[in-house]
Design a protein around this nucleic acid. Sequence first.
DNA 1: TATGGTTGTCTATATCAATAGACATTTAGA
DNA 2: TCTAAATGTCTATTGATATAGACAACCATA
Lengths: 244, 244
Amino acid sequence: MAGQKIQRQTGVALWRQIADRIRTSINHGDFDETGMVPPETTLALQFGVNRHTIRSALGALAQEGIVRAVQGRGTLIERKERLSFPISKRTRFSQGIGDQVRETRSVLLAAGEEPANVELAQQLKVDVGTQLVRLETLGQADHRPVSRATSWFPADRFGNIAEIYRTTGSITKAFRELGVPDYVRVVTEITATHADESDLSDLQLSPGAIVLVAQALNADLGDIPVQYSISRFAADRVRFTVEN
Amino acid sequence: MAGQKIQRQTGVALWRQIADRIRTSINHGDFDETGMVPPETTLALQFGVNRHTIRSALGALAQEGIVRAVQGRGTLIERKERLSFPISKRTRFSQGIGDQVRETRSVLLAAGEEPANVELAQQLKVDVGTQLVRLETLGQADHRPVSRATSWFPADRFGNIAEIYRTTGSITKAFRELGVPDYVRVVTEITATHADESDLSDLQLSPGAIVLVAQALNADLGDIPVQYSISRFAADRVRFTVEN
DNA sequence: TATGGTTGTCTATATCAATAGACATTTAGA
DNA sequence: TCTAAATGTCTATTGATATAGACAACCATA
C-alpha cells in the first residue's frame, strides 16, 4: 500500500477510494503474511483520515464479502480475487481460466432475435437489417460471476444457437453442432468504464466499481464473421493477458 | 446515452457519474450532429436529477476543456478524445496512433538505476539484484498526455539508454543504436483501476477517473527480454485493440 | 423587436460524508 | 486474571452533495 495520497472533493467519497485501494492491496497479496488487514487506527494514520472513514471503507469491503471484522482480533481477509484472462487467437472463456479455479460455468440469461443496426452489420459484415440472434450470458468461476456478455450471431447460420447453448453451456460446442468446427478471434477492443446499474446486479459489484469492456469479433476458418460480442468484466477480479 | 440509471449513495457523487457518462457519449459521437450537449433541463430529465446536479457535471467537463457553456445558446463540445491503441507483436507507441493524430511525442521525465526486485528479475529473466536502468516517460499525442510509463532495461546491455532516448525520443531508435535491431512484444497484461494522485497530474485527469494499466514485456529476436514496462493510460482517451 | 429557449445566479432545505472525542466490548497473551 | 490492542457504538459538528423554486441575462430568429 504505497504512499499514494487520496483525493478530496473530487466527487468520489474518501471511504470509497480507500476501499478500492485496500481491495487492490489484498488482491496484490500485500497482507498475505498475516491474513488480515492492518488495524483501523493504523490505516487511518496511513491514509490521513479519521478512523470512522476507514470503518466505512472496511464496511463496504465486508459487504462484498472480502473481509470480516472480528471484535478484539482485527479484520480478516476472507477472499482474494483477480483472474488472469488470456486473449489470443483462440480465446475461450472456460479454457483460459480453467486452471485458476475449480469450476467454470456459463449461464444463458436471455436470448432473442433482432435486426442488425449499422454497427453490428459493419462488424459481422452483413447488410443492415439482417436478422441476428442475440445471447445474453453470464460467465462464472467458482460460482462467482466474472463476466457479463452480449453476443450476436447471423440468424441464417445460427438460428437455434440459443437452444444448443442452453443445453451445452458452451459456445464452442454450439458452433460445432452448427457446422463450425473451429473459430478464431479476429480482433478485441478493450476499454474501461464505471459500472452501470446492470453491472452491479449481474456481476455483484460494489457501486462505483470499474468494469473492463471487451468488444470481440470471432470468425470461422474461412474468415467469415460468426460472432460479435461485448463482454463486461469486473476490473478487480480480472486481468487480460495478451500473448503474442 | 442509453437508459442506464445512475447510482445513489455509492460513494460516487451523482455529478461525477453524470460527467463521466456525458464525456463517454461525447467521445462516442452521440452529439456530433449538433456539436452541442443537450440542454440542461433535458439532461436533468433524462438522468432523473435536479438541473443543478447537471450543472455540476457540465462544470467539471468545462474544467477539463471538453465543453464550453454559452449563455443563451447552449453547451458546445470543444474536444473529443479516444485514441485506438493497437497491441500486437510489434507494438510501438508512435506507430499505432500516428495516423490518428497530427503529432506524437515521447518525453523522458526521469531516469536512474536500481537493482532488480523479485518481480522485475522474474520478468526480465535476470538474477535478483541485477542492476537495471529505469526510465520514466510520458507519451503525448497532439500535445495532450496519453500514457505514463515506467520501463526497466538490463543495465549491462543498455547502460546508457537514457542518454540516447533523451536525444532521439524513441525506444526503437535507442534499441537500434545499442545493437537491438528489432524487438517484439512477448506478453501484455491489462488491468484497470482508479487514477492515483500522480496519474492526475501526469495525465491531466479529473479526479475519480479510470486508468488502463498495461504491463508489457518486450524481447529481442533471440527471445531475450530487453524491456519490462508498466504503462498507465487515461481510460477515456484510449482503447486497446488486440489483433490476432 | 418580441418571444421562446437557453445558461447564470440566488436562497433555502435535507441528506450524505468526514471529523472529533469518548467509552464499551471482545480477544489474545503476558 | 489483568492488560493491551483491537473492533463496536454513540453523540456532536462541519462541509459537500442534492433538491427545489424563482428569476435574471443572453441568444437566435420569427
